[in-house]
């Protein structure tokens, strides 16, 4: 715990303290700031994903621009999907030494790993993955019993 200067507010009121508290809490849940710190299972270099639920399947979309398909390893074990791989530096160390002038480098590279727990009722035998325009799409079908069904109502 570090000491923090409290904001100056209107004397005799606590209004500004609530504003300050609000900002602190907002910052705590800010996804931009959260990326800086490692999560329980995620490494700092965890690629961003979206997971979308469809009637018959879940789809996981992951941004991996410039990553070769052969450098991506996708495994599934007991409903836990692991995405592992390596993102190579666009300008290698070797080239940097050979008189290549680097002006700006904003990307992260190195090894990455992401572990995602899938919900119950998925068919882990039939997982499919495709890659297009630097986006990896993993399709995880639902098992028949997990699919939504419409129940016919019979009139008696």
């Amino acid at each position: 715990m570090r000491l923090m200067r409290m904001p100056n507010g209107v004397p005799g009121t606590t209004g500004s303290y609530f504003d300050w508290l609000q900002d602190e809490i907002n910052r705590l849940f800010d996804p931009e700031a959260a990326e800086l710190g490692p999560g329980l299972l995620d490494r700092p270099a965890a690629p961003r994903v979206d997971i979308v639920e469809y009637e018959d399947r879940f789809e996981l979309l992951c941004d991996l621009p410039g990553v070769d398909e052969n450098d991506i390893e996708l495994t599934i074990a007991a409903n836990v999907l692991t995405l592992k791989g390596e993102k190579k530096a666009p300008v290698s160390e070797e080239r940097r030494e050979k008189g290549c002038k680097l002006y700006r480098d904003e990307i992260w590279y190195g090894n990455f790993q992401r572990t995602i727990s899938l919900p119950q009722g998925v068919d882990s035998e039939n997982v499919g993955a495709t890659s297009k325009n630097g986006v990896l799409t993993v399709s995880v079908p639902k098992r028949d019993e997990a699919k939504q069904r419409r129940i016919e109502i019979k009139s008696s």
């Binding site: 002038k101 002006y103 990307i107």
Partner: peptide, 16 residues
């Protein structure tokens, strides 16, 4: 990433 190599400027942008 922006770099210069042999009189050419390369601009590499990630647009997944």
């Amino acid at each position: 990433t922006i770099w210069e190599e042999g009189g050419v400027i390369y601009l590499r942008l990630e647009m997944p």
